[in-house]
Structures are given as C-alpha cells and as structure tokens.
Amino acid sequence: MPDSEALLRVEHLSKFFPVKKHRLFEEQSYVHAVEDVSFSVNAGETLGIVGESGSGKSTLARTILALTPSTSGDVYYQGEKITDFKVGHAEQKRLRSQMQMIFQDPYASLNPKLKIGDAISEPMLANGQASSRAEAEKKTRELLEVVGLRPEVFDRYPHEFSGGQRQRIGIVRALAVNPKLMFCDESVSALDVSVQAQVLNLFNSLKNEFNLTYVFIGHDLSVVRYISDRILVMYLGKVMEITGYDQLFSEKTHPYTQALVSAIPEPSTAPRKNRIILEGDIPSAVNPPKGCRFCQRCFKAMPECSEVEPEMREVEPGHFVRCHLYDPKEANER
C-alpha cells in the first residue's frame, strides 16, 4: 500500500481509553476504541469511513488530528511523521490549518454570541491567511458566496440560520484557512433529505475548486458510497474492509459489509433480495471478542473465527478484507 504520494498515512494507530476502576486491586481494563488501524489517503481522493455507533470512527479522526493523544502507532502527513502533532510550534500551526474538521451538529459548533463573519475571520487572522481585519472580511465575503450564502450574512448571528445554512457556515470556517485535507464527521447526518443533497453537491464542487482531499465519516452507507472513492468499513475499533466504492457489491466483501448493504432500506418498490438481518448488538469494546471482532454476529462464522483473528488480505486489486473466508485455501503454516 505505501506509496510516495499518499497525503495522509496511518500506521497501526491505536487508542485505548482506561475504564475507571471500582476496586483497588482490580486489573485496569480499557475501551478498545481504535485498534491497529492502518490506511492511507491519496491527494485528491475522498475516503469514506463507515461503521455503526461505537465502531471508533470519530475517535479515529480525533486521534489523527491530535485532539486526543494516541496510545500507539504513527501518523504521517506528506511523508512526515506527525503523530500527536509532536512537531515544532510553527509546524503545528501549519498542520492545524492544513487539516480541518467539519462537525456533525451545525447547532453546537458555532458560538451563538459571535457574528458569522467574526467566527470565520478569526481563524484566518490567527493562522496568517489574512494580515488585516479588512482583508479577512473581504476573503470571508468571497467564501460565503462560494458556498451559496449572501455576503451580507457576515454581520448576522448563528440563530438566524437554518441547519443547512449553519452547515455551510461551518464549511466556510474550515475553508478559511486554506486546508488541504478535510475531515467531515457525520457532516450531513443532521440535515433534512433535500438539504443533505445540496450540501453533498457543495462538498463535491468545493473539492474540485480548492483541490481538497476528504475523509468523510458517516453511518449511512448510501451517502458515504455516493461521495467516496474508497470506503473503509470499521467494526469495534478495527478496520474490516477497505474497498473501492464500485466493489461494494463484489462477491468478495466482508460479511459485515454485506449485512450493512443489505440493511439499508431502499426507497423503491423493486422486490428485495433476501435480506441479511444480523442478530444481537455491537458488543462492548471493553472486552472485545477473541478472534474476529464480528464473529458473534456473523452469519458465516466458522469455528476458527472465534479463535484466531483474521489478517487483512488483498482479495482483488485495491480491495482489502479482514475475514477467514478469504484465507488462501492451502494455509500451510500458522
């Protein structure tokens, strides 16, 4: 996988949260939020990350951006090691402006007492994208127009806007510092269907206009598939599959991915293929199952699945799956 042009490369990244002890001589246990995750993002592509709640997709983004310290593993940006942003102060500032995040809740991510214009110009001034207030204001007004808002909103407050408009403001604020890599964490989940389509189109047009690279995190596979070039499927903190968006229906996908695809109710009257309905809930990440993380709910589980953790394997060019089903037939030695 490792190629020189990868914009972001994550190697064996893990994040464990300690669980509060209730007794003095209790063994310390951990929530395995993100465990041994490796992937890379090439410049100009959109990588989608899907998973159910508790699969560690948000923690993964936060760990990469050093919003929470990692437990182990490394993160490389443009070939340089930036794990936990343990780099010089100037370099840290550069990274903060080149990697931006757009959050899920457009209501909670804007300061209600700050004018829209100030909320957007502030990071520009702090990061040196504008040298004066006047310049920042000019740039902000231009950006507001790019995302389809009138420049006059500069002097208005967040409560005057709808959810879709606020999300656009969040996007402008992230764009203000000339980012290269954007992390969109469930950025369209809180929006209505008709507005969601508008914002998805906006993401795609901004990508071309500003040469952006996206890491798009979501729980809705049909939305993530639509916007992504490649998709990474997470379950209980582990990567189960990395695949091109057009390989999602391939026969060689992970059983969990098959279940996710099958679980989506399609808005059509076409007869449904036999649906896969998984039993039970996602297990606790404190004591993840031995062997494959998915073995307890898997409809294709074999005896070895609950014993041995499968390795990530390339089943087709560019398509990696962590499942014993795709082990080479003559597994000679283990």
Partner: peptide
C-alpha cells in the same frame, strides 16, 4: 435527491 446504493456519481438533483 436521495443518494441510494445504486446512484451515479454525478451531481445529485436538488430542491433549491
């Protein structure tokens, strides 16, 4: 305007 598992990658039709 709803992206489905079979949508094309082109721009989604939207309601302004």
């Amino acid at each position: 305007s709803i992206p489905t598992m079979h949508s094309d990658k082109g721009p989604l039709p939207t309601i302004p």
